[in-house]
Amino acid sequence: MRIPALAILTIATVLTSVSARAQTYDPAYPVCLHVYARGANYYECRYTSLPQCNATASGRGAQCVINPYFASAHSDYRRHRRAY
């Protein structure tokens, strides 16, 4: 009797589990809002400037961060080379 009950419990757990979304940065926007909420910790990457993001973060448990995966974030290495 224990084996069928355990099998039913396992199947019910697998079928009712919620799929988790991967936490990603949107490469289309340079600034992300990192939200700290009870039971949730996520990023909203939809801001074009830090002041715009800071206005949204005001009064919330949130912090603005620079998007490390922004499409234009890669600098040209030749610009930073020294001439010897």
Rank of each mutant, 00 (worst) to 15 (best):
A40V: 03
Y69P: 03
C53L: 03
A37D: 15
H34V: 06
H74W: 09
S58I: 00
A57H: 04
Y77C: 04
Y29H: 14
R21G: 07
S49H: 03
C32E: 01
Y25F: 15
L50F: 15
Y42Q: 07
L33H: 08
V35F: 07
Y77P: 11
Y42M: 02
A55D: 13
G59K: 05
S58K: 15
R60I: 02
C45K: 00
A40Y: 14
C53V: 05
A71D: 08
D76T: 02
Y47T: 02
L9D: 05
F70L: 06
A20D: 06
T13D: 02
A28L: 09
P30I: 02
C45D: 00
T24I: 13
L9F: 14
Y25D: 03
A83G: 07
L15K: 07
Y29E: 03
I11Y: 10
R78C: 02
S72G: 11
S72I: 00
C64K: 08
I66L: 15
C32F: 00
T56M: 15
V35W: 06
F70I: 01
R21K: 13
L9I: 08
T48Q: 14
H34M: 08
E44T: 14
A73T: 04
T13V: 12
A62R: 03
Q23G: 07
A73F: 01
Y25C: 06
P27Y: 06
H80P: 00
S75Q: 14
P27C: 03
P30L: 08
D26P: 02
R78N: 11
H80C: 00
A73S: 15
V14C: 09
Q52D: 15
E44Q: 14
I66S: 11
A12D: 04
E44P: 03
R38T: 12
Y77T: 08
R82L: 15
A20S: 11
A83P: 03
A12P: 00
A28W: 03
A5E: 10
V18D: 07
R81N: 05
R38I: 11
Q63H: 11
E44H: 11
L50T: 10
S72A: 13
A40T: 08
L6G: 03
I3K: 13
P27T: 05
C64F: 08
V35Q: 07
A83N: 13
G59I: 02
Y77Q: 09
A62K: 06
C45T: 08
A62G: 06
I66C: 05
P30R: 00
T56P: 00
A12Q: 01
A71W: 14
D76S: 09
A57K: 04
S19I: 01
P68E: 04
I8E: 03
V31L: 07
N41M: 01
A28K: 10
A71H: 12
P30K: 04
A62Q: 05
A62P: 01
A7L: 15
G59T: 00
